[in-house]
Computed example of a mutant assay.
Amino acid sequence: MKYTVSIEIALPRERVVQLLADPAHMSKWLRGLVLHEPLSGVHGQVGTKSRVVMEMGKQKIECTETITRREPTDLRGIPEGHVVHFDRKIVGEGMWSAVRDRLTEAGPETTLWASENEYRFSGLLMRLVGLLMPGAFRKQSLQHMEDFKAFAEQGKDVREAKD
């Protein structure tokens, strides 16, 4: 299953990149995040493997995230018009996913965040989930982006949100 979601954020690209790259902010916008800890490497750097635990409803999901691309590697002073790439592979029980995030300048004070997502499933249960609920994955990806936008633009913290 493949899909792309995108959102415009009313902040300059360099500021958006700084906020996305800072692990101290992840729990403020990544709904359901319980743990994100590097197992090897440095957070956000190519080749870094991290243990990620997410809580969805009453279920906890554990997976391993590997950073596969980060361009440019130095996020300070990104040249105008340059596309910022953050790619990662996520592997969990019965699931493999690749996420390719692109951040471009939509204007002097606006950033376009486009996220290409690909999922592959193994095992009967996960294959059924992928077949019966493809919209749920797209909806969750967009929810994470909307939560980040609210955090970046307005300082909203998902941990304080009332659902």
Rank of each mutant, 00 (worst) to 15 (best):
Q18R: 10
L19V: 05
L19W: 06
L20P: 01
L20E: 05
L20G: 12
D22T: 03
D22Q: 10
P23N: 01
P23V: 00
A24S: 08
H25E: 01
M26N: 08
S27M: 08
K28F: 01
K28V: 07
K28G: 08
W29E: 00
L30S: 06
L30M: 15
L30T: 12
R31Y: 12
R31A: 00
G32P: 03
L33P: 00
V34S: 01
L35S: 10
L35V: 10
H36Y: 14
E37P: 07
E37H: 06
P38R: 01
L39Q: 09
S40N: 14
S40G: 13
S40D: 09
S40R: 13
G41V: 03
G41E: 00
G41T: 10
G41K: 07
V42C: 01
V42W: 04
H43F: 15
H43E: 04
G44T: 11
Q45Y: 04
Q45K: 14
V46H: 02
V46S: 04
G47Y: 11
G47H: 05
T48C: 05
T48I: 05
S50N: 00
S50D: 05
S50L: 08
M54D: 10
M54L: 12
M54T: 10
E55I: 09
E55T: 09
E55W: 04
M56E: 02
M56S: 10
G57R: 04
K58S: 05
K58C: 06
Q59M: 14
I61P: 02
I61L: 13
E62K: 13
E62G: 12
E62C: 11
C63Y: 13
C63K: 13
T64W: 13
E65V: 15
E65N: 13
E65K: 14
E65Q: 15
T66D: 06
T66A: 06
T66C: 09
I67V: 15
I67C: 02
T68I: 05
E71S: 08
P72C: 11
P72V: 05
P72W: 11
T73K: 15
T73E: 14
D74P: 03
D74K: 09
R76D: 07
G77K: 06
I78M: 01
P79A: 11
P79E: 03
E80W: 14
G81K: 09
G81W: 07
H82T: 15
H82A: 15
H82V: 13
V83S: 06
V83I: 02
V84W: 10
V84L: 09
H85R: 15
H85W: 09
H85I: 13
F86G: 04
F86M: 13
F86W: 03
D87H: 12
R88D: 11
K89P: 01
I90S: 07
I90L: 14
V91R: 03
V91Q: 06
G92S: 01
G92Q: 08
G92D: 06
E93Q: 12
G94A: 04
G94L: 09
W96G: 12
W96E: 12
W96Y: 12
S97D: 07
A98G: 15
A98P: 02
V99Y: 12
R100N: 09
R100D: 08
D101N: 13
